[in-house]
Design a protein around this nucleic acid. Structure first.
Length: 569
RNA sequence: GCGCCCGUAGCUCAGUGGAUAGAGCACCGGAUUUCUAAUCCGAUGGUCGCAGGUUCGAAUCCUGCCGGGCGCGCCA
């Protein structure tokens, strides 16, 4: 990765120039914001000059005199108030392209200190259909897991299913009184939802029903055999259906350890927290106070209700224990919505009090809003099912594919699925995770502009050239990059490494999405400006190599977003 | 009341200390008997919510204000 190599060289130059770096000062090199000046740039001289109270340009000159980058750069210049601008040489670029081509991970270097990272995402509820609200956690989590794996971390994905909520009181009561077994067989989730909604409505008008539901729940929690059996059936039926969706989405988990998995660990956990003095009795409930943290001083974390029941935080604490003990987790990433920020702050504080050193990160994201700009609530009745969105996306893609020639119906179906699902994923991942956005069919399913089909089309264009190519052409490493469009593409390709690593710095898939969009855009421009097959000799060879490299980076990059590619469209 | 997040082009959004703030959509003008146009080239469009401050340099950092969203003990 050029950025780190140049940073290292810069560091050495400081040393050779005899410049003592102040505590905490790290020279940085970044991708140039304006390519007129160069490919990479550094503001280290300006930043340091401020601290040392010297002239930035003179300091820059001192550094450049000691800088050894002749193997990488054809030019290093000092511009403006003291920017260092690096222009890569053709040979270094060509070498990097050839690395991308032969490397298993397309030139993305591994981290020097790999970690064991648990990624907790998706977490749908049992007996409820997945809706558009699940899109964010599922796609962001899946993408982060893929990127973390690529850069060398050991990643454990865990779907912390909501399989033990209070909603089971209603489902149990409904199962026993109004369940339609034929309907259950046909579409389990739909029937369970119907039952849940019907009973939920009854509880609003009839307090006796509510009471019955509570009793059913207590019986379940106390281990009543019949209720437990019904619960198991619900879980099994729901998991089946979830697996189907995840299969369609190409999202996979190493574990499905739902809330229920931790049931028997909760009582001893609360006891130990109490006996160690971390938790205390307050207003009948057991909670952990954070009197030493001003912002949390009046916001205790409840771990046991006054009626003896356990809570969200209790299960999460038990889950942390498990992940540390069984999986030796160094880090845990929770891909959960921003409204739960307080919950996680409390959770992390409790963990800290217990002396746990695992690094925990709440990867928060904004809300998908309804057309009214309010939260997209499940019970509002307006929520759109995830399946419906995916089906609609594939149908729209299919309508476009239909007009293409030379494809069989089966191929058209497959292509439409890849594009449809890719479009939905890209709509999410190309967005900053903290931004709230209104759900819109058109936005989610757009096939034009900055969308998955645009990127996939760029990939298809790289492939079609090779299909037309006679025989096997030996791609040499001697590249002749002369046209601006060629050089722009080569530079873009080299930056895949930086883009991939940037995703993990702040858990931001959209940085990779915009990189890939820029790459596709650069390729499309190159494609118009530089004929490949009609060119000859070294020029043709160079262009073929650029196409081949683009092909690999697009496929790998889209793969990191969880988006599949197709050879034709 | 306190805490967190957000406010950038008509719309949807990138950009979190660097050089002239960028895309997509929409609108307007061009390019095609194609290495498959789901494409390309160009034009129009912005006191980056407001006001101060720090800095050689601020959409970006700090303070205050305005507007919107979310959260703040027995749901998850």
């Amino acid at each position: 990765m050029f950025r780190t190599v140049l940073t290292d060289r810069l560091q050495s130059a400081f040393t050779s120039a005899g410049i003592l770096l102040p505590e905490g000062f790290v020279p940085t090199v970044g991708i140039a914001s304006d390519t007129r000046f160069g490919d990479y740039q550094s503001n280290a001289a300006m930043t340091l000059a401020k601290q040392l109270k010297t002239n930035p340009r003179a300091l820059a000159q001192q550094i450049v005199d000691k800088l050894e980058v002749s193997d990488l750069c054809e030019k290093v210049s000092i511009d403006g108030p003291g920017f260092l601008n690096f222009t890569l040489g053709g040979k270094a670029l060509a070498q990097h392209l050839s690395l991308i081509l032969k490397d298993d991970q397309a030139g993305v270097p591994k981290v020097s200190a790999p970690k064991r990272i648990v990624v907790d995402f998706s977490a749908p509820n049992i007996a409820k259909p997945m809706h558009v609200g699940h899109i964010r956690s599922t796609f962001i989590g899946d993408c982060l897991a893929r990127v973390a794996r690529l850069v060398g971390h050991t990643v454990i994905t865990d779907n912390h299913i909501g399989d033990w909520g209070t909603q089971f009181g209603m489902i149990l009561h409904g199962w026993k009184t109004i369940l339609d077994h034929a309907a259950l067989e046909k579409d389990p989730i739909q029937e369970l939802v119907r039952v849940y909604k019907a009973i939920n409505a009854e509880t609003k008008t009839d307090p006796a029903v509510l009471d019955t539901c509570r009793q059913e729940l207590v019986k379940l929690q106390q281990g009543n055999a019949n209720n437990l059996e019904i619960w198991k059936q619900c879980v099994a039926l729901s998991l089946d259906q979830l697996q189907t969706i995840y299969g369609k989405l190409d999202v996979h988990f190493d574990h499905y350890l739902g809330e229920s998995y931790y049931n028997d660990k909760l009582a001893p956990l609360v006891e130990s927290l109490q006996s160690s003095g971390i938790a205390e009795l307050s207003e009948g409930a057991i909670c952990v106070f954070f009197r030493e943290v001003p912002e949390l001083a009046e916001k205790p974390c409840l771990i046991r209700k006054s009626d003896g029941g356990f809570l969200y935080a209790t299960t999460d604490l038990a889950t942390i224990d498990y992940r540390i003990q069984e999986w030796q987790a160094d880090e845990i990433w929770y891909v959960v919505g921003a409204p739960q920020e307080l919950h996680f702050r409390q959770l992390f504080q409790v963990s800290k009090k217990r002396g746990q050193t695992v690094a925990m990160q709440h990867v928060a994201f904004g809300s998908i809003l309804g057309q009214d700009g309010k939260m997209f609530k499940t019970r509002s009745g307006e929520s759109v099912g995830l399946i419906e969105v995916l089906d609609e996306a594939c149908e729209r893609a299919r309508a476009v594919v239909e007009e293409r020639e030379g494809l069989t119906n089966d191929e058209k179906d497959q292509i439409a699925t890849i594009i449809g699902i890719g479009a939905v994923k890209y709509a999410e991942l190309s967005q900053h995770r903290m931004t709230d956005y209104k759900f819109s069919w058109d936005k989610m399913l757009a096939l034009q502009g900055n969308t998955a089909p645009y990127l996939i089309n760029a990939y298809v264009r790289t492939r079609s050239i090779f299909r037309k190519l006679e025989d096997n052409v030996e791609l040499t490493q001697e590249l002749v990059i002369s046209e601006p469009a060629e050089r722009a593409l080569a530079m873009k390709l080299a930056q895949f490494a930086e883009a991939s690593h940037d995703v993990l710095a702040d858990h931001r898939p959209n940085l990779l999405a915009s990189y890939l969009y820029e790459l596709a855009d650069t390729y499309h421009s190159f494609y118009e400006a530089c004929p490949v097959l009609r060119a000859e000799g070294a020029v043709r060879n160079t262009r073929l190599t650029l196409c081949q490299t683009t092909s690999k980076v697009l496929k790998t990059g889209l793969g990191l977003l969880g988006i599949r590619t197709t050879e034709r469209m």
